[in-house]
Design a binder for these strands. Sequence first.
DNA 1: GTGAAAGCGCTAACAC
DNA 2: GTGTTAGCGCTTTCAC
Lengths: 363, 363
Amino acid sequence: MPNARRSVFLSADTEGERGNGVTLADVALAADVSLATASRVFSHPQLVRESTAQRVHDAARRLAFRPNLLGAKLRSQQTRILGVMLPTLENAVFAECWAGIEEVSLATGYSLMLVTSGYDPARERERVEYLLRHRVDGMVLTVSDAAQSAVLDQLDSEAVPYVLAYNQASPAGRRHSVSVDNRTSACEGVNALIAAGHRRIAVVSGAFMASDRARQRFAGYEDAMRAHGLPPLPPVNLPSHTASHSERIGALMGASAAPTAFFCTNDLLAIGVISDLKRLGLRVPRDVSVLGYDGIALGALVEPPLATVVQPNPDIGATAVRLLLKRLHAGTRPEALSASAPCVTLLPHGLRVAGTVAAPPAS
Amino acid sequence: MPNARRSVFLSADTEGERGNGVTLADVALAADVSLATASRVFSHPQLVRESTAQRVHDAARRLAFRPNLLGAKLRSQQTRILGVMLPTLENAVFAECWAGIEEVSLATGYSLMLVTSGYDPARERERVEYLLRHRVDGMVLTVSDAAQSAVLDQLDSEAVPYVLAYNQASPAGRRHSVSVDNRTSACEGVNALIAAGHRRIAVVSGAFMASDRARQRFAGYEDAMRAHGLPPLPPVNLPSHTASHSERIGALMGASAAPTAFFCTNDLLAIGVISDLKRLGLRVPRDVSVLGYDGIALGALVEPPLATVVQPNPDIGATAVRLLLKRLHAGTRPEALSASAPCVTLLPHGLRVAGTVAAPPAS
DNA sequence: GTGAAAGCGCTAACAC
DNA sequence: GTGTTAGCGCTTTCAC
């Protein structure tokens, strides 16, 4: 009877283990009920008489009982852990998204495990495997390219419930996603540029090939240009948005028909491009306009404020979790799954056309 | 013999559970070894013959075995999960720190659980309790005020191993921390301001009362001022660094002896203050100089580049994890613990005096 | 409404 | 080297 020994010496708190070594069995003993009843008090309170529950709660408090979630998770075959994979937290978009994810997960009693993929498909695989080993109940993730993602194929084949965030799934498929409408919103943003008088608008993108969003946003740009009879320019791809790319931008601005506006496929990039422009002696927005995409808080903080297409970042995270939870609770019955809301959730976007966008110079 | 049934039908992958239902027992059966041996192949490979190990690995691959970490964690009484509590990820300092934490943790086979406290002591308690319930082996955390932290007191009393990040523990205490020397580095930064010719330097701080770092950095400012016979000005406390505070700054700049330089206790704040200044029609650094603190990547990206005291953020995270791991592996013997390196680890800081700092206007 | 008992998947003594 | 045997802390049928 090892537990009996423990209970006796408990107050001395001799052991160095986490959770002070008090188990549910100790609580049951102290409350003079069976282990089963003690368990029920916490997991299914409605199954136990009020007075009994009170005794158990008292004992638990007295012994400073801390439930060991591991035992519960192992036995019940559902961990109530959600896996989250984001490209990086160093881009505020995803940090803001995490805030939304954390809030609703913890509020609903779910735990989280976060990994970052660094936009690298190989690392995506590895990190997802890691999450799977932890037997997460489901995942919220952003992959570099949802259309051809080894990771998503794997998840599908293993029937792991997941909801994409930011990746906008194809309406044709069965994949669940939460995002804004990348193409439409980008188109609106570029329309605003055109409305301001711009005709030569260049798109600057980060890892174009590594981001389906970037391509969708570019398509939106093309839509807007074509709708106004303007020739779309080929995209300018800048590999990393933390380095400066003055040369590329400089060459562009030095050319005969230099663009009068830049549409950057994300805000961090936009901030970098604005700096590059300044270094070239150009003023934003007087000489050149810049439009970003993301709506990170920082953009509103700088002066002039960054004009941008605004995504509801925390809400994207929160909604993705809620949807995932709904799927999890719907059970494994396929009817329930498909019946539950459409796969592709589009959240409303905003447009902040201010600071860094103005009419083009008279020329 | 439920498992036998499972093994037979396995290739059909009928079950909807995570981890395809293959257990180590199935692998052992397929490889014709005992469960114990199969286990050893993964946990203690050196204890098992090469050829046997090979058989087990083959069987595992054939069955697509995915170890259930929960079982291992529960049984071995060490979860190999590290808890991480950071104030927020929306400040890039902590996002960068997380990158360091994630890298070394996953590389050493440790899992992570992240929570954010939002600088709120009540939420700190709650989140720590959450981590404790998951039986994390140890924690890396940043608290608002290490000197009087209910959470740290609790952790100490329960003998939970932890290492502070950014909080600079008192050398007198027994608490482990990894940070730069806040006071000295701030002093150096302000010295650079003074060397540039500034005499009226104001300190702008975020949640001053909620951040011990902010106070330590202010002390460094006082040191520098006093060392040069200059009167320290009272700190300007701005509650949130995401809002604009033009009024406060405006009032300050409108006063008779307006400061010629601002020392902001973090970079985000500095970026906000620069914007405020611009809105007031002031040019940085020509009219006013601004020095930040943190060294976030973004600071180098903006134009002019943000002058700042640079912390090695990813390294702070990585070092904190390594130290924590060292403590965990030292066993619970107190001698080993105290023998292992000093408690307070100070990492080297840098100084980027450029862009936003220049000589004060002739006046 | 409550109790007894059987595990969840894995590791760690202890034999051999 | 390898196998046998107990559990880790909890949930959950199944009786009563």
